[in-house]
């Protein structure tokens, strides 16, 4: 048994729990090139008072939390379409209100981007979901593995957390 047997997954960002769960369910992790699934993990950034952020710092947070996520997903989806195959995207990050205002903006944007792309690409067979959580443990790994798998074939545009404080 393996939810992800035969699937290739590109894991962008660091999460040992997610990497372990994907491998345990039979996925092959690839660093670049074609892949069936894109999992994008944004590292939590330190929260700072928003009025102390320079525009450049603000921009860097939005670039990491939103722009890079969108652009990489756009390229992933284009590759899947030209291959005539469906796929899955899972965004992982901190809860919307967990960190600074920069992250709140990026997370809010990501939430509605998830809902939008999940429908916009539905007929390409490409699903898009988000997990925004404080959890770094096995449940996060298993939840991401589930969302990446065909068991979640009817789950798209969904945004969820893991624990009580994830909002």
């Amino acid at each position: 048994m393996g939810w992800l047997a035969g699937k290739t997954i590109r894991l962008v960002g660091e999460s040992s729990a997610i990497a372990a769960a994907l491998k345990a369910q039979g996925a092959a992790l690839v660093a670049e090139g074609d892949c069936d699934v894109l999992v994008h993990v944004a590292a939590p950034q330190p929260a700072r008072p928003v009025h102390e952020l320079s525009h450049a710092e603000w921009r860097a947070a939005l670039d990491a939390g939103l722009d890079q996520r969108f652009l990489q997903t756009r390229d992933f989806a284009a590759a899947r379409r030209s291959a005539g195959k469906g796929g899955a995207v899972v965004y992982v990050g901190a809860p919307e209100q967990a960190l600074g205002s920069d992250q709140a903006a990026a997370a809010g944007a990501l939430i509605n981007l998830t809902k939008t792309l999940g429908v916009e690409w539905a007929r390409d067979g490409i699903r898009v979901n988000s997990v925004l959580t404080f959890d770094q443990g096995e449940t996060l790994g298993n939840l991401v593995a589930y969302l990446a798998s065909d068991y979640a074939a009817y789950v798209t545009g969904a945004v969820m957390g893991v624990g009580l404080d994830d909002g």
């Binding site: 449940t139 939840l143 589930y146 545009g157 969904a158 969820m160 893991v162 994830d166």
Partner: peptide, 19 residues
């Protein structure tokens, strides 16, 4: 598998409600 999962409402609707 989801031992830490609680308080979550998970959408499973094939995108229907987001049209």
């Amino acid at each position: 598998f989801f031992v830490a999962l609680t308080g979550q409402v998970i959408l499973q609707d094939g995108g229907e409600s987001l049209r």
